[in-house]
Amino acid sequence: MAHEEILSEQEAIEKDIRSRVAAFEKARGNLIPILQMIQEKQAYLPPEAINTVAAHLEIPVCEVYGVATFYNQFRFHPPGRHPVKVCMGTACHVKAGDVILENFERKLEIREGQTTPDREFSIERVACVGCCALAPVALIGDTVHGHMAPSKVEGLLLRIRIEKEKAEREKVRGER
């Protein structure tokens, strides 16, 4: 994709967000719902968005920041295209979920909370995804992978990489 295209896409998103924010009633109680809306659209809260929200609700910027940083849900950096979430709930812990987390960290060479330099993967820990009977559990994107084992980690990542390469090859072929 050309550089300008990415830029204009970004601008379009920002414009969309500004108009959506403007549609909210100027009430303090809307702060969290607005932040949630932005995060849903953009997958994270960029600094401009925080300013937009503060301006709309007519509250200090720091106040928005203070609230946003309190909650686990909000992130301030874009996640990877394939966010890996490793369950660290009680059942998964007892079944050695930390070993799974470590394996993802080792294979992707990033730590929990980080994104790979190519923006393909990010790792985070989540609390109980609600399928404890399948413990230990990891999610890649929205797909749940139950009964995880360290040896399954590599296979899962490999599959995603292969699919990506395949898609790219097909794209190149299509463009020809």
Binding site: R28, G29, N30, I32, P33, L35, F70, Y71
Partner: peptide
């Protein structure tokens, strides 16, 4: 429906109310 933003402490009544009011859930 109000969506909680993921803080265990917001299950506590007063923190829950704080978060609905758009504050830090303390």
């Amino acid at each position: 429906v109000f969506q909680g933003s993921g803080a265990f402490v917001c299950g506590e009544e007063t923190a829950l109310i704080q978060s609905i009011e758009g504050q830090r859930g303390m």
